Computed example of a mutant assay.
Amino acid sequence: MLRTLLMVLCVVAASQQLEIPKFSVPEAVEKGSDAELICEHDGSEKVSIVKWFWNQDGAEKPVQIYQRAFGGEKKIIIPKTEPLLNITLIEEDKHNLALWDLQPEHSGTFECQVEEEANFMERRIASPMVVYSIGDGPKLSFEGEEDVLVVCEAAGVAPEPEITITYGDTTLNTTLLEGPVDGLYNVSTNATLARQDIEGVEVSCKLSFDNEAIASELLQVADMYHSADGAERTTAVWALAALVTILHLQLM
C-alpha cells in the first residue's frame, strides 16, 4: 500500500513539473549590437518567482540581473561591471530582457530560473553568448626581396583569435597576441620566406576563432607575391568568408 502511494505521489509530482517552453539566448552577437533574452514559463498560477542570472566569462560565480516575485514589482538588477551591462524589459507583462550596446566583456552564460515556492519546485535553463569583434584586418604585407618578411595582422578582435599565413600547401600559425584591452586583442604572425618559394604564389592571411558560435574563417585576404621586377608588388583580392554563418545565428 505504501509503495503504491509513493508511486502515485511521484506521478503527481512529475505531472506538475515546471516547464519553460520558450527560451532563447543568441549564440553570437557583434560588438555594439543588441540582444534579446527570452524566458516564458508555462503560465502556471503557482509560479511565484522568475529570475535571470549572468555568469560573465572568467567570473567566479553568476550575478542576478532580474527578479519578479509575484505580488511585487519587477526588478532589474544592474551588476557593477565595466563596461556597464545595459538591461531593459522588452514587454511589461513578460520576463524577457533586452541587452544593448554589448561589448566583448559581456560574453558569458545567461540563465533563467522559475520557482514555485509552495511546491518547492524550480526550473532552470542556461545558454552561453559570445560578443565578437572582427576588428581591423586581417592585413597582409611583404618586405624584402631575396628573403621576404611576410606579416599577417589584425587589430581590435574578440574573442581570443588565431591568425595564419598560407602559401601553397604550407600553413604557418605562430600567433602573437596582445591584450585583451577592453576585451579586444591585437594579433599577428610573421615569417621570413625565400623569394623563390612564394614568387607568383597566392599567399593568404586568415583570421579564425576557436568558438563554434562564430565562423571559423571570418575574413580572408589573398595576395599574389611578385618580385620588384614586376610592375606591382602585390595584387590584393579581398573576400568575405563564412559571414553567412554569423548572419544565420543572429536570425535564429
Rank of each mutant, 00 (worst) to 15 (best):
M1P: 00
L2D: 05
L6E: 11
L6N: 10
V12H: 00
A13Y: 12
A13W: 10
S15P: 04
L18M: 07
E19F: 15
E19I: 15
E19A: 15
I20L: 13
I20Y: 06
S24Q: 07
V25N: 02
E27Q: 14
E30F: 10
G32L: 04
E36L: 15
L37P: 02
G43Q: 13
G43L: 10
S44K: 13
V47Q: 03
I49V: 15
I49H: 02
I49D: 01
K51G: 00
W52R: 06
F53G: 01
F53E: 00
W54K: 09
D57T: 15
D57A: 15
D57Q: 13
A59G: 07
E60L: 10
P62S: 05
Y66R: 04
Y66G: 00
R68Q: 08
F70K: 08
K74C: 00
I77F: 09
P79Q: 12
P79D: 06
P79G: 08
K80Q: 12
T81F: 11
T81I: 10
E82G: 01
P83Q: 07
T88K: 11
L89V: 08
E92Y: 07
D93V: 04
D93M: 08
N96I: 11
W100M: 00
W100V: 01
L102R: 04
P104K: 02
H106W: 05
T109W: 00
F110V: 01
F110R: 05
E115H: 12
A118N: 10
F120I: 02
E122G: 06
R124M: 06
I125M: 09
I125C: 00
V131K: 05
S133Y: 04
I134H: 09
I134E: 02
I134T: 09
D136C: 10
E143H: 14
E143L: 13
E145P: 02
E146Q: 15
V148H: 03
L149R: 13
A155G: 05
G156T: 07
V157D: 00
A158H: 06
E160M: 12
P161K: 01
E162D: 10
I165S: 01
T171S: 14
L172C: 03
N173A: 14
N173E: 14
T174N: 11
E178V: 11
E178W: 02
P180T: 05
P180A: 09
D182C: 04
G183D: 07
G183E: 06
G183W: 11
N186G: 08
T189N: 07
T189K: 06
T192R: 09
L193V: 15
L193F: 07
A194Y: 04
R195A: 08
Q196L: 08
D197I: 06
I198V: 07
E202C: 02
C205V: 01
F209L: 08
F209C: 05
A213W: 04
A213I: 07
A215H: 14
A215V: 14
L218N: 08
L219A: 10
M224Q: 12
H226G: 00
G230Y: 15
R233Q: 08
T234Q: 15
V237Q: 13
W238T: 03
L240D: 06
A241E: 08
A241Q: 09
T245E: 01
I246Q: 12
H248C: 03
L249Y: 13
L249I: 09
L251E: 03
